[in-house]
């Protein structure tokens, strides 16, 4: 009786320890996420208003301005403008671009802000909440909805 009682108590203690450790990890993760007011990236007007130090690694997010994407002659480097609707900033990136990195779509660039140019080490494609069937490509969402309504 006492033997199993002790073992059960021991087991309970171990499990409580595991629970506390798990809580601690969860708390640390939350704190990690909440740094910089938990925002994952700067938008152009923020980076222009409060430029970060040149040696600090930061993220810049926004929309790729249509018609701004220019390939450099070396075939690897690309220059483009990122906008948040208020301000726009130039970005340079050399490397493999994600498949969904296109003009007029969202992007998050990781890199450094130096003298008015954002040099990206890595690009992430950010898509919006819109889902449109491929057959309706080229239409705006409103047009697509009209097309759906008409075929009903």
């Amino acid at each position: 009786m006492t033997g199993t009682g002790l073992r059960a108590k021991h087991q309970r203690l171990v499990l409580l320890g595991v629970a506390l450790a798990v809580l601690l990890v969860a708390g640390l993760l939350a704190a990690w996420a909440l740094r910089n007011q938990a925002s994952y990236f700067y938008v152009p007007s923020e980076i222009l208003a409060k430029p970060p130090e040149a040696d600090r690694s930061v993220r810049l997010g926004g929309m790729v301005v249509r018609g701004s994407m220019k390939d450099a002659p070396d075939g690897v480097t690309v220059n483009f403008l990122v906008t948040d609707g208020k301000q726009q900033v130039p970005v340079r990136f050399a490397g493999i671009r994600p498949a969904l990195f296109v003009e007029g779509s969202g992007v998050v660039a990781e890199g450094h802000w130096t003298d008015g140019l954002f040099t990206a080490d890595n690009l992430l494609a950010k898509h919006d909440e819109k889902y449109t069937p491929r057959e309706m490509q080229g239409m705006t969402t409103d047009q697509a909805h009209k097309a759906i309504a008409e075929t009903k």
Binding site: L29, A30, A33, A38, A99, L100, F101, N122, L124
Partner: peptide, 16 residues
């Protein structure tokens, strides 16, 4: 991985 170009990021949604 195919949509964003990364398996994981520490943004608010994924972390929470």
């Amino acid at each position: 991985r195919p949509a964003w170009g990364t398996w994981w990021v520490w943004d608010g949604r994924l972390t929470s």
